[in-house]
Design a protein around this nucleic acid. Structure first.
Length: 278
DNA sequence: AAGTATTACAACCGCGACCCA
DNA sequence: TTGGGTCGCGGTTGTAATACT
């Protein structure tokens, strides 16, 4: 099958995305919608391959991405869904509104699989490991303090040659999120510019989204904001956000367990798993 | 304080599936 | 039916941040 030539093409950018590239991509998708990734970079004026654009959008720029730490409830659901579905990250992500497959995959690899091992459970099979079969338990010596940003420290001399690393994860506020900034609302101090996200994203619910950049197009630190979140329910994906999703997942899990108990027909179990795709 | 090791996660790579002429 | 083009997924890598010595 033909494979899309990718970033190895001469002249295409690779590595971390700059705020300017983000803006170009977001603006283009706002105007033309998702899809046609192959032709998108050229039309959007980006020197990136389509796959890179798609990945950036899906994992980072999409307006419905939920940011912040994985909650204990989410952890529990990921573990249980993994026990049912295996490494089908996109399927698991589809049951966790606002979470991406990449995020869940990374979280699994860095946290959950190690935790299961430390608890004597095989992370692949979710079965208890035999006590006489010790495994190397990779328990982090000390949990790294979660940082939401990667400050652009000029640590290496080559830093200037590299593309500027953006501050990650723009905060997205919706109309259901009340927020204030320590600086003035639009056009703050120190050259900060609050850019209405709605300029970039077509939001059919007319929600206002903001990205906060300074005049160098760097995203402003989260700490500039104080927010009160009132959960927005997303019924478009079959599950509501937050608590609703947990309830639904409970039901899915129970349903699957019931199938396991009463029916050994693998085809039916598979079809159940497939039904989760919808 | 400096060097080294570890962790976290964004981004890339390669493959298979799907679509369509 | 075939084959080219495209997309999506899962595995892997690269590297900044942080912890440790």
């Amino acid at each position: 099958m033909g494979r899309a030539p990718c970033c190895s093409k001469v002249g295409l950018h690779r590595g971390p995305w700059t705020p300017r590239e983000d803006t170009l991509l977001v603006k283009y998708i706002q105007a033309h919608g998702e899809g046609h990734w192959r032709s998108l970079p050229k039309k959007a004026g980006l020197l990136r391959c389509g796959k890179s654009c798609r990945l950036r959008w899906m994992n980072y720029l999409r307006p419905d991405i939920k940011r912040g730490n994985i909650t204990p409830d989410e952890e529990d659901l990921i573990i249980r869904l993994h026990s049912l579905l295996g490494n089908r990250w996109s399927l698991i992500a589809g049951r966790l509104p606002g979470r991406t497959d990449n995020e869940i995959k990374n979280y699994w690899n860095t946290h959950l699989s190690k935790r299961l091992l430390s608890q004597g459970t095989d992370p692949n099979t979710h079965k208890k490991l035999p006590p006489d079969n010790p495994v190397v338990v990779l328990v982090p010596k000390k949990k790294r303090k979660k940082s939401n940003k990667r400050p652009n420290k000029s640590k290496k001399p080559t830093e200037q040659e590299k593309p500027k690393i953006h501050l990650p994860k723009p905060i997205r506020f919706t109309s259901s999120v009340q927020c204030t900034t320590k600086s003035s609302s639009q056009g703050g101090e120190n050259g900060q510019v609050l850019v209405p996200w709605s300029e970039f994203i077509n939001d059919d619910e007319n929600r206002t989204r903001f990205l906060c950049y300074n005049d160098d197009h760097d995203l402003i630190n989260n700490s500039d904001f104080e927010c009160q979140s009132h959960h927005h329910h997303d019924h478009d994906h079959g599950l509501g956000a937050e608590g609703d999703s947990n309830d639904s997942l409970e039901k899915i899990y129970e349903e699957y367990l019931q199938l396991l108990k009463t029916n050994e027909d693998q085809v039916q179990l598979d079809s159940f798993a497939e039904s989760l795709l919808i």
